[in-house]
């Protein structure tokens, strides 16, 4: 199916130059390349600028509530395994208010893909510090420098049990699309941490700031170098960090028919 099949007539309301455009283009191309029937494509957004992507890609989508896209997506995927279920939300949504659900999804290995639109700020509420903003940094709209340490999404994903962990950069649309393809093809919980500038509120982590630091992994690391690569700070590696095939949650649950008669018999006295 052509990319145009996945377009909607909603006006895209992001600021000019926003990293979300890169994700939108790459994701449309990826689902088009995989020929996913729009009816079987389920994007679940949280709340925030990036989550509005559910209005811009034609699918059978859900715009959920702040921080809770993952539980809703999990319920959908468990109920109808033939759907492709993708969560798209910001770093504040997934790693701040929704962090508990992010961890739980990794533990369950449900076949849901999580795209973290990681710009280190709360954009739609106008520029507060997000969970991935380094400490000591004072951005344009903040009252004072960040007093929280930054969270490392990859390490948290690894500790939580995600079976596919990748990092990408929103302006490298082609590379991003390749990583998204791999994530969607993966069977199990997948996370792609997508670094992206917020052109309006993040005046530190700009396009230039990222592009001075990022580089691509030559191959998927193994052994101790997985953690080393995830923890690297001066330069920022991109690509797939970890991938493993494991039983998904659904497979872990045995199935049998409900025997109502035996339930009643067990509880009957005579």
């Amino acid at each position: 199916m052509g990319v145009s099949e996945y377009k909607t007539d909603a006006w895209v309301q992001w600021c000019p130059g926003c990293g979300n455009y890169g994700v939108l283009t790459a994701l449309r191309e990826a689902v088009s390349e995989l020929k996913i029937d729009p009816k079987k494509l389920v994007l679940v957004g949280g709340i925030g600028c990036s989550s509005r992507i559910v209005y811009y890609i034609r699918g059978s989508n859900v715009h959920a509530i702040h921080g809770r896209a993952i539980p809703i997506a999990s319920g959908i995927k468990l109920s109808n395994p033939e759907l492709t279920v993708i969560v798209a939300a910001g770093d504040g949504d997934i790693l701040g208010i929704g962090a508990g659900h992010f961890i739980a999804l990794g533990r369950r290995n449900i076949d849901v893909k999580v795209l973290i639109h990681d710009n280190a700020v709360y954009g739609l509420t106008k520029g507060q510090a997000g969970p991935t903003l380094p400490s000591g940094v004072k951005l344009r709209a903040m009252n004072y420098a960040n007093v929280h340490e930054a969270l490392n999404p990859l390490l948290l994903a690894f500790a939580s049990g995600y079976t596919f962990i990748a990092r990408a950069y929103a302006y490298h649309v082609k590379k991003l699309k390749e990583i998204l393809l791999e994530a969607i093809r993966h069977r199990g919980s997948a996370v792609v941490d997508i670094l992206q500038p917020c052109v309006t509120y993040n005046d530190l982590m700009t396009k230039e700031w990222f592009e001075r630091r990022i580089y691509y992994l030559k191959s998927i690391p193994s052994g101790e170098s997985i953690l080393d690569k995830m923890m690297e700070r001066e330069r920022i590696p991109l690509g797939i960090f970890f991938r493993k095939e494991m039983d998904t949650f659904k497979k872990r649950m045995e199935k049998f028919d409900v025997d109502l008669e035996s339930v009643i018999r067990k509880k009957t006295l005579f």
Binding site: P38, K39, K40, V42, I47, V54, Y55, R58, G59, S60, N61, V62, H63, A64, I65, I76, N80, E82, L83
Partner: peptide, 11 residues
Amino acid sequence: PIGMATMIVSS
């Protein structure tokens, strides 16, 4: 249900 048609279930 989702999966049977395109739609947006929205908050």
